[in-house]
C-alpha cells in the first residue's frame, strides 16, 4: 500500500467512461489523468455535459471507469466489493450534492448524526458531534428542524456538515451552489474553504459558476470528456 502522505490523495490514470445510449456510445470521459494532493481545494469547471459528474462519481467510488484506474488514498476503488466500498465511503469520503439530498424525515442534527451512526459511533457521542458541527456552522437554532423547514442555504450547510462530520479525507461536491442564489452559493464555498483550513480536508468541487471558481486554489477545466489544468 503506497504511503498516502507523499502520494497524491486522488490519482486518476487514463480514465475513460462510455455510456451506451441506444445503439450509440456516449464517451463521457475520454482519457482523464489527474492527481489531487491532500489538503487541496480544487474546483472543476466546465459546461454542462462535459463529464464533471462522471469524473466525480469515479473518484467517489460510486461508478467504475470503462478503462483506466482510480486510486483514492492509495486504494484502487474498483478492487473493492460493495460492503468494503461502502465502508470506504463511510470512513474516507464525504459528498455534497446540487440538490442537498438530506433525509427529509430526519432533523438537521439527525442528518449530521446519520453518517456517524453508520460508522458505529455511539449515539451520545454522535449527537454531541452533530450539535458541535451545527454550532460551528451557525445552525444551532435549526438543529431540530427538518430539511423542509430550512432554507436552501441552510440545507446545504447541513449537507456540508454531514459530509464533514466523519472527518473524511476527501469531500466531493458536485455543483453544490447550482440551486442557491449567488450570495448564498458564495457563502457555502467560503464555508468549505474555512473547513478545509480548519480540518485539512481535501475538497473537489465542480461548478459552472465563475464566482465559485474565483475561490479555487486549483482550477480544472473539463471539456468534452477531457481535462485541462487552467
Amino acid at each position: 500500500m503506497p504511503d498516502t502522505t507523499t502520494q497524491p490523495l486522488v490519482r486518476v490514470i487514463a480514465a475513460k467512461k462510455d455510456y451506451p445510449l441506444g445503439h450509440r456510445i456516449v464517451q463521457a470521459l475520454r482519457g482523464v489523468t489527474l492527481d489531487i494532493a491532500s489538503h487541496s481545494f480544487v474546483v472543476m469547471q466546465g459546461p454542462s455535459g462535459s463529464g464533471k459528474t462522471t469524473l466525480l462519481n469515479l473518484i467517489g467510488g460510486i461508478d467504475q471507469p470503462t478503462a483506466g484506474s482510480v486510486f483514492v488514498a492509495g486504494q484502487d476503488t474498483s478492487k473493492l466489493g460493495d460492503s468494503e466500498l461502502s465502508r470506504f465511503r463511510a470512513q474516507r469520503l464525504g459528498f455534497v450534492f446540487q440538490n442537498f439530498n438530506l433525509i427529509p424525515v430526519l432533523s438537521a442534527a439527525e442528518n449530521i448524526e446519520y453518517p456517524l451512526r453508520l460508522n458505529k459511533v455511539p449515539a451520545p457521542e454522535a449527537r454531541a458531534r452533530a450539535l458541535a458541527m451545527l454550532a460551528s456552522m451557525g445552525l444551532s437554532e435549526e438543529a431540530h428542524q427538518r430539511p423542509a423547514e430550512l432554507s436552501g442555504g441552510q440545507c446545504q450547510r447541513v449537507a456540508v456538515g454531514r459530509a464533514l462530520v466523519t472527518r473524511p479525507d476527501l469531500v466531493i461536491a458536485d455543483e453544490p451552489t447550482a440551486n442557491l442564489d449567488s450570495a448564498t452559493g458564495a457563502k457555502i464555498i467560503e464555508l468549505m474553504r474555512e473547513m478545509r483550513d480548519r480540518l485539512g480536508t481535501t475538497f473537489l468541487i465542480s461548478t459552472h459558476d465563475p464566482q465559485v471558481a474565483a475561490l479555487a486554489e486549483r482550477m480544472l477545466m473539463m471539456r468534452d470528456g477531457l481535462l485541462c489544468d487552467a
Partner: peptide
C-alpha cells in the same frame, strides 16, 4: 443514492 454515498450497504 445519497444514503449509499454515505456508506449504507446494499444490505
Amino acid at each position: 443514492g445519497a444514503m449509499r454515498t454515505m456508506g449504507v450497504t446494499r444490505h
